[in-house]
């Protein structure tokens, strides 16, 4: 009886903690959503309103470019363009990372190298690219891109984004391929299939869900990048991350529209995350835990 009461008391505390955590996590987002539906007066008034009359004005302004440029004066904002840029850069960036990374991940598991430790070394060295301070690369790259005319270009950014995607894809796909027992591939080779055929009929179907989740996460990571776009991007290729800053300028701060921009920018990734939830743990912990 006593134990039961203690258990229940513990449960109450745990619930309390969980609910508090959930509130703390969700509050900033929900608040931002509410801001995006508020009229400027409601936003800037001294006492923030929790109950208000919602308006779609902010969103309407976001998507009508003419209104945006008029309201801010010299700087011209083009949110739809930013969103499109994010899609293009992250989309093609992820595609390229997959094309380059998945075969590499496979080769690292099944290929024969002179030293068996080479494979882990390569995979790990690639992953360590994530650890480097970007400025150490961006400062010289600024000059290099200027010289080769890659500034403010999709290709320039997509190539640069490979520093994010390739290590991750190689690392994760290697982890997924390692899960497939070599004996299954051997059986297929003996059945009469070549290695190429074996890859497509055995390895690929088994690894598909994992690779799909990796693709989603790569897309999210590339979507989230800021530094690369800041230094090497420009008016034409600005993605939502740097674009969102444009709402704060010396002339005015468009709180409502910025809130709306944040909401729309974050929405795709949240939706994607919910879809691949099951595989998230493995990807987000970099394969440290199989989940």
């Amino acid at each position: 009886m006593y134990m039961q009461k203690r258990e229940e008391l513990h449960k109450v505390w745990i619930y309390f903690g969980l609910v508090a955590t959930a509130i703390l996590v969700l509050f900033p987002m929900l608040w931002t959503v509410s801001l995006s539906f508020k009229v400027p007066q409601d936003i800037t008034c001294a006492v923030p309103k929790f109950i208000f009359k919602p308006t779609l004005d902010n969103y309407r302004h976001l998507f009508s470019i003419a209104k945006l440029s008029k309201s801010v004066g010299t700087t011209s904002l083009n949110f739809p363009r930013y969103f499109l840029n994010s899609l293009i850069i992250s989309g093609f960036g992820t595609l390229l990372s997959l094309l380059v990374g998945v075969p590499a991940g496979y080769a690292l598991t099944r290929g024969k190298f002179k030293k068996s430790s080479t494979r882990e070394n390569i995979a790990f060295t690639l992953l360590s690219f994530w650890f480097g301070p970007e400025m150490a690369i961006l400062l010289p790259l600024y000059k290099l891109y200027r010289t080769f005319g890659l500034m403010d270009s999709y290709i320039g950014l997509i190539l640069l984004y490979q520093l994010i995607g390739v290590p991750f894809v190689v690392w994760m796909s290697r982890s997924y391929f390692l899960d497939i027992p070599v004996s299954i591939e051997d059986a297929s080779l003996l059945d009469g299939y070549t290695r190429w055929q074996t890859f497509w009929r055995i390895d690929f179907p088994l690894v598909k869900p994992g690779i799909a989740a990796t693709a989603v996460l790569t897309f999210i990571f590339e979507w989230n990048n800021f530094v690369f776009a800041l230094v090497v991007g420009g008016r034409h290729t600005m993605p939502v991350t740097t674009g969102a800053l444009g709402f704060i300028s010396y002339e005015a701060v468009l709180w409502g529209q910025m809130a709306g921009a944040i909401v729309i920018s974050a929405l795709p990734e949240i939706i994607l995350a919910i879809i691949v939830q099951k595989y998230m743990i493995r990807g987000l912990t970099f394969g440290a835990v199989r989940g």
């Binding site: 027992p181 004996s183 051997d186 059986a187 080779l189 003996l190 059945d191 009469g192 070549t194």
Partner: peptide, 16 residues
């Protein structure tokens, strides 16, 4: 392997 006239069973069966 696919040209040799051998068939093999594996210790872990290696079924697809």
């Amino acid at each position: 392997p696919f040209r040799r006239s051998c068939a093999m069973t594996f210790e872990d069966y290696a079924l697809y």
